[in-house]
Amino acid sequence: MISNESLLSASIATLHKEYPYINQFLEAYPFLSRQPHDQPLARILLELESQDEDLAFDAQSFLNQMREFIVQMQEFLGQNEGNVEVITVLPGRDKHGNPEAYESVELLKGTVTSIVGPTGSGKSRLLADIEWVAQGDTPTGRSILVNNRPPDTDWRFASGRKLVAQLSQNMNFVMDLEVEEFLMLHARSRMVNDAETLVQRIIAKANELAGEKFGPQTPITALSGGQSRALMIADTAILSSSPVVLIDEIENAGIDRRKALELLIREEKIVLMATHDPILALMADQRIVISNGGIAKLIVTTPEEKLMLSELEHYDRKMMAFRNQLRIGGLLHELKES
């Protein structure tokens, strides 16, 4: 266990050597970098005492926070990531207090589950239950198991690692950065070892998903809707710390949705997808039907349904061809039957 005393006797140089990630924490205290790096911290803090008010600096809380940061980082780096194999949703009750009529829903890693139901039926609450790792303590009374038991990790408060990552149509990039810079920033905040390789892989994958190509130097805010979606999905699949990915519809424009799902599956994510698009719903292994705030039933996609998928995809391609015909300025009836 690290003590405040041991931190006080260390110099800034030693801290950097022993805890390479301490940089992230010290960045918020730029005035410290102007202090001699070879002096014990205790001495530096003593020197700073006279300016505490000006710097809005409190040595005691600084020390406590630094210790907390190191302890958490050591835990974070020591833990085996990607170890969530299965999430189980145990029944609670619907909006009227009726018990939910299913036994349990299992969400396995590398599989896709779609969620269907009218707006306001309780899709968000289901997600929130999973994210909060509900233990019968939410309005639905549901319980969530992680790897078949009540979770031992404190998923609720671990700020470095949330259970659920989210992708929705309303999300936009807002940072003023180029694609590569942006991904490097994300990679650094996740403290991965081979950041550069990962970043290149994300760009390559995103380009496979996107209809139109983009380069590492494209500003992220200049990406088209389809390109943004592709980059968000590739980034979430490869770099996000969260084992569960929630997708709120993927519009059928400028992105290969089948490839997008395949990428998430290959990266062993547990994929949940709220959708009313029959093609997407059929790409899922199972679907949860929600009504009145409760899970009404769980349908496993049948072989008959899977057969319909190719028919639906045929119509889909046809629509795409018409759309393309419009884009290039042609007449719709001139499009040949495919």
């Binding site: 807002v174 991904l183 994300h186 943004s228 770099l239 996000s240 969260s242």
Partner: peptide, 14 residues
């Protein structure tokens, strides 16, 4: 958080 990307949420939280 509903209007920015997952990556930006993670970076900001970090």
């Amino acid at each position: 958080g509903d209007i920015v990307s997952q990556a930006e949420r993670e970076v900001f939280a970090a």
